[in-house]
Every structure is written in structure tokens, then in C-alpha cells.
Design a protein around this nucleic acid. Structure first.
Length: 424
RNA sequence: GGAGAGAUGGCAGAGUGGUCGAAUGCGGCGGUCUCGAAAACCGUUGUUCGCUUUACAGUGGACCGGGGGUUCGAAUCCCCCUCUCUCCGCCA
């Protein structure tokens, strides 16, 4: 959510910036400014009426105590009409406030100045790449065949237990999952992140806090009996820790890391291109979240990008980093880098991480602030998050890229975690 | 799931219709004293929406779990909701 002050002061600037995201802001901004000024106008009136109401009431109290009952009754007369006016004015304010809020949450975050204009994936800018593309023989198999051959991930069994998109990991497949999770968490800890193990069901307030509600309601599984939502990412609980809090300036930057399973209904997005591990309803992910001082959020973003880059290179996966164009960025982000790894048998790049700076867009909605030390002002923090990393596509790439005639080689760094060197 | 108790400022904890944005203690911040520190003493101490403004200044409104009601006036009375605690039941 953009702050109302920014909208009042820099309307033209907002319109220009949102063009990069192909968003036409003129009309919404116009409506917001009208609502905002009538809101303030009404409030000014009610505040002054309320003030005279308060002083009359105080007067009545004094008169009653002094036993001047007649004078008190006369004063009471004066309040009746005031009271009605206040009531009717504040009734008017309620729909205005609601409309204002509804308009405000429809405005996307402003893209950072380095975000390229564009409409889709083709317009993203490659920042850099790393690793070596493996040369596989013609007989190389895609991961959905490999997992069957080695009996490590079972989709059919998942269908029996739950449904499509809920795989069962077996034997070395399960151990590989556990190894990756622990590897990611350990690397995070080395980089200064504190581990969090949050609930994987959250309430409505948390859904609103990070913006999944009200818009993306259909993307989350909903436990209706208790009105809880299964988290689509650890970002939801871990970021909501800071909902409605004023953090101590000294504690910034706050760096949290969490492993959770993630649940996504992916309504309407199923198709042939999402075979195997490419898209699931339940998957595992390690997420990093930072709460930082506004002055240093872009430094933190770069730090997070190099952290994720470290992970993929340690796993010896060929990767590339993209700076997303305005059209491909999320609603809430100011700047996003996507990580893709090369899936050698599918011959495609697979997105495995998305690292974003939300600046104060998310914290304004969350009401997460800190007290500036220099001028004692309460200000919004900046929030950032990124996957470090999402498992399924990493697994797909490892399986495909490392296949040999005798089995699948486990990346060096994972061997201490798996306890085996080859899947066969 | 059943019964009872409760929800007040960063924390603890008073307050049962007007002088209460709220006693007191702790903590925090500033000062006196000190070579320095501790102790003691003095002062200060929340959030939020407006208005006036150069303003870290002045001023008005709102905020005692959330929402509604009674009243000239509500932290205090009434209703609904949420949450917490204790006991019982169930249970990894």
C-alpha cells in the first residue's frame, strides 16, 4: 500500500513510475484525492463539534456537582442537536473511509528506477549467469522418468492419498529433501539469519497483512471450519510477526529464515508444461525475510541475491539471474531478481527463487515501523524476501543434470547431509 | 467440548459514571552529585487522524482486547465477538 502522503504530494511522479508496470493510475489517484479531501473536511467538522460537545459535558459535570440542576438541564438541551449532527457526519465518514482504503490497496508498488519497462518474461534483463551447462547424451531422461526408475518420488501414490500435485518422497528421495532443507538452513544461519519455525496455518489478519487477501483468496487452501489458511509461502507467517509492531531501531536489520511446506491451489494454471516437479500443490521451501532500515534496503537486496547465488553455485547448478521488467513484476515489489536453473533434460530454465525489495509497500499495510534515532520520528521499515530456495525444481535440475549411467550423482556439498553419493 | 475467571500504557498493576490518557512501581530517556560509575534525588516518557506551521513547536479529535448500545458525559453500565488463564473431558 502506498502512503497517502506520497499520493498527496507526488501524484504526477506516481503516474509516471507506474507506467513502467503498465498500470494506468490517473483515475484511481483522482478518486483517492477526492475521497481523501472529503474525508479530511468531514473530520475537521466532527472534531470541532466533538470538542464543543466535550466542553459542554465537562461544564454539566461541574454544575451538577455544585447542585445547579436547572443550569445543567439547560446545558443538556444544547447537546441534543450537536449530538445528532456528529452522528450523521460520522456516518458519512464510514463509507468514505472504506472506499478510500479499497482504492488504496488497488495501487501497485512503484518500481525502482532500475526496473526496465516491459510486458512479460521476454523483456526481463539478464544480470549475469554462472555454472556450466552439462552435455547430456541423447538417452538422458527428464526427471519424471528418473524418479520412477529409481523409485524416489511417487506421484501416483500421492494421488491415492490426496490428489494430483501432492507427491510422496520415498527412500533416497525423502533423504534428498531433508538434506536440501538442512543445507539451506545451515547456509542461512552462516549468513546471519535466525531460524524461525512458524505455524503453517494462519488467520485472516495475517492473510491481509501480506496481501494474499482479499485478492488471491482462491490461491490458498482454506480450512473453513476454523477460518484458517494454509500458507502459500513462509513469507506470510514470518513477515506477519512484525504486523502492528514498532521494532527497536537497534535491532535492524532483522534477518529471519524459515523452512515450511507451502500450499498452493494453482487454480486454473495446470497444463502440459507443468509436468513432474515443475508445479505442485504442496512443496518445500526455505525462505529468507529481512526487515531493514529504509536507507539500506538495496544493499540488503544485493546481499540476499549473492546469498542465493552462493547456494545454486555450491549445488553446481547452471543458473542465470534476471532483473524483472515492470510487466513481469509482482504487484507489491519495487525490484525483483529471479533465479533460474538449467534443467538439462527438459532443456529449459526453471525459476527457483524470486528475491524482492518491497520498500515500505508491505510495511505500510502491516504497520511495521521503527523509531528513527536521529529525529525520533516513527517511520516505516523496508521489507524484503526471497526463496533460498524452493526445492522441487532444484531437485528436478539436480536429477536431470547429474544423471549418469550408474545413477544420479549427489552434489558434493550435500553428501554430508544425505549420507550417500549416488542415487541408484 | 463443559464450567469459571479475566483482557488497562514497554512490563507489572490500581482505577466501577464527570476533575482519567489514566495512580503507583519497574524499565527507558535527560539532569544534579561524582575523576568515572553505582546509589540517591529531580524531571521526562505511548499510538493515531487532523488543523496552524520552517518547526524536533502549538492545538483539536480518537484510542483502556474488537464491534455495537445506554448517557449531556463510559476504562467504568448493557449486548455481541475474539483471545487468554484455571479446572474437567479428550489427546500427539
Amino acid at each position: 500500500m502506498l502512503s497517502i502522503n506520497l499520493i498527496r504530494e507526488k501524484k504526477e511522479f506516481i503516474i509516471e513510475r507506474l507506467k513502467v508496470k503498465n498500470f494506468k493510475a490517473e483515475e484511481i489517484l483522482e478518486r483517492i484525492l477526492v475521497l481523501d479531501s472529503s474525508r479530511r473536511e468531514i473530520q475537521l467538522k466532527t472534531d470541532s463539534m466533538q470538542a464543543s460537545m466535550n466542553s459542554i459535558s465537562k461544564e454539566i459535570g461541574t454544575l451538577m456537582r455544585d447542585g445547579k440542576k436547572n443550569e445543567a438541564d439547560a446545558a443538556k438541551e444544547k447537546t441534543y442537536s450537536l449530538k445528532e449532527e456528529i452522528k450523521s457526519l460520522s456516518d458519512k465518514l464510514i463509507p468514505i473511509d472504506n472506499d478510500l482504503k479499497n482504492e488504496l490497496i488497488r495501487l501497485p508498488n512503484l518500481p525502482h528506477e532500475s526496473v526496465p519497462q516491459g510486458y512479460g518474461a521476454d523483456d526481463n534483463v539478464k544480470v549475469r549467469e554462472g555454472g556450466i551447462l552439462p552435455l547430456l547424451p541423447e538417452t538422458a531422461l527428464p526427471h519424471w522418468d528418473l524418479i520412477k526408475n529409481y523409485d524416489i518420488i511417487d506421484f501416483e501414490l500421492g494421488i491415492k492419498l490426496t490428489g494430483a500435485g501432492f507427491p510422496v518422497y520415498k527412500g533416497k528421495g525423502a533423504k534428498l529433501q531433508r538434506a536440501l532443507i538442512n543445507f539451506f538452513l545451515d547456509e542461512g544461519e552462516k549468513a546471519g539469519y535466525r531460524e524461525i519455525m512458524p505455524p503453517i496455518l494462519v488467520n485472516e489478519d495475517s492473510g491481509f497483512g501480506t496481501g494474499q487477501l482479499p485478492d488471491k483468496e482462491g490461491q490458498m487452501y482454506h480450512a473453513t471450519l476454523d477460518n484458517f489458511y494454509l500458507i502459500p509461502t513462509a513469507e506470510v507467517p514470518v513477515t506477519n510477526i512484525y504486523r502492528d509492531v514498532i521494532v527497536n531501531a537497534d535491532s535492524l536489520p532483522i534477518k529471519n529464515i524459515a523452512y515450511t511446506p507451502c500450499f498452493r491451489r494453482e487454480a486454473g494454471s495446470w497444463g502440459a508444461h507443468v509436468r513432474g516437479l515443475n508445479r505442485l500443490h504442496q512443496f518445500d521451501k526455505v525462505e529468507i525475510v529481512q526487515i531493514v532500515h529504509p536507507d539500506s534496503s538495496y544493499k540488503s537486496l544485493e546481499e540476499m541475491v549473492s546469498h542465493v547465488e552462493g547456494l545454486v553455485s555450491k549445488l553446481e547448478l547452471p543458473y542465470r539471474i534476471l532483473r524483472l521488467c515492470g510487466g513481469d513484476m509482482s504487484f507489491t515489489s519495487a525490484l525483483t531478481y529471479d533465479f533460474e536453473v538449467w534443467s538439462a533434460a527438459q532443456k529449459r530454465w526453471l525459476e527457483v527463487s524470486s528475491v524482492s525489495n518491497f520498500e515500505s509497500f508491505q510495511s505500510n499495510r502491516l504497520k511495521c515501523r521503527f523509531k528513527e534515532k536521529t529525529d525520533k520520528q516513527t517511520r516505516l521499515v523496508h521489507t524484503l524476501n526471497g526463496s533460498a530456495l524452493a526445492l522441487p525444481r532444484i531437485v528436478a535440475a539436480i536429477l536431470e543434470n547429474n544423471q549418469t549411467e550408474t545413477g544420479i550423482k549427489v552434489p558434493e556439498v550435500l553428501i554430508p547431509y544425505t549420507g550417500f553419493e549416488i542415487i541408484n
